[in-house]
Amino acid sequence: MNMLRRTALILPPYLWLLMLFLVPFLIVFKISLSDIELAIPPYTPTYDPEKGIWDLLSQLDFENFIFLSEDSLYFKAYLSSLKIAIISTFLTLLVGFPIAWAMARAADHWRPTLMMLVILPFWTSFLIRVYAWKGILSQEGYLNQMLMNIGLISDPLVILNTNIAVYIGIVYTYLPFMVLPIYATLEKLDESLNEAAVDLGCTRTSAFWLVTLPLSKPGVIAGCFLVFIPALGEFVIPELLGGSNTLMIGKVLYQEFFSNRDWPVASAVAVILLLILIIPIILFQKNQEKQEAGQ
């Protein structure tokens, strides 16, 4: 292939990503080491060509990170994001696995339809799907109306603006991400393995725990990461469904930037969130590679 032509193909997407993905990151990193200033942009130092790059570097320090480690709010926010992401990933697995299982056991001509029914909500606006729960979970919402009408409760339950609402929101919006990878592994599963286990004296239940579940592990792991990673930095769900005491790091970053206008601290929060995410992302990559190698 012609060298010039190849370079012409490579350069536009390469330069685009360098300029609009990598450089912005370096800027975030730099600002996280800067000091807040009440000017625009609200941080110093800014790059001054006359003084040169070394002058800029010498003014950077880790003050914002020390500030983050000293103020317990941020530490709590990281911990609470982790907690919320872990619990809701587990709940999504509990809800999603039976659905994927039933889809894989459905008749062949039903599967494409079921698959589309699971994917369809994913194409609808995320914001609208989260918003829909506001009307359901509020004090005078549909859920409380229903429960009170059938006489199950006498006083409305407080669900909206609590962490429970955040869990429901995450499970609801990320369910397709859990169901599809699990379905993909369960569908390929050879059913005769299960029958062999039963023939050899396993009960149906123990055949599930000993044969099906270990074999569906790659799908389960992929699904869990696909829910956990975006849930950790989630902003919309805690903002709309959570309460004022729902601490999540995405929300803290947003407030730090827009309400407090503290750009250096917002950038430092972003850098740490990224560092926390790198581990699950690498593990996810490893899992995917193993799966591909297995095929």
Binding site: L20, F21, P24, P230, L232, L253, L277
Partner: peptide, 30 residues
């Protein structure tokens, strides 16, 4: 720079939106 390139293709898929948004805004201002 092939590794860097494929990294830059896959990274935005898993990046939290708040970070992507913040970094782009800081670029536009810079």
């Amino acid at each position: 720079g092939r590794t860097l390139f494929s990294g830059m293709i896959y990274a935005p898929l898993v990046m939290p939106e708040v970070i992507t948004g913040l970094s782009l805004l800081l670029l536009f201002i810079a």
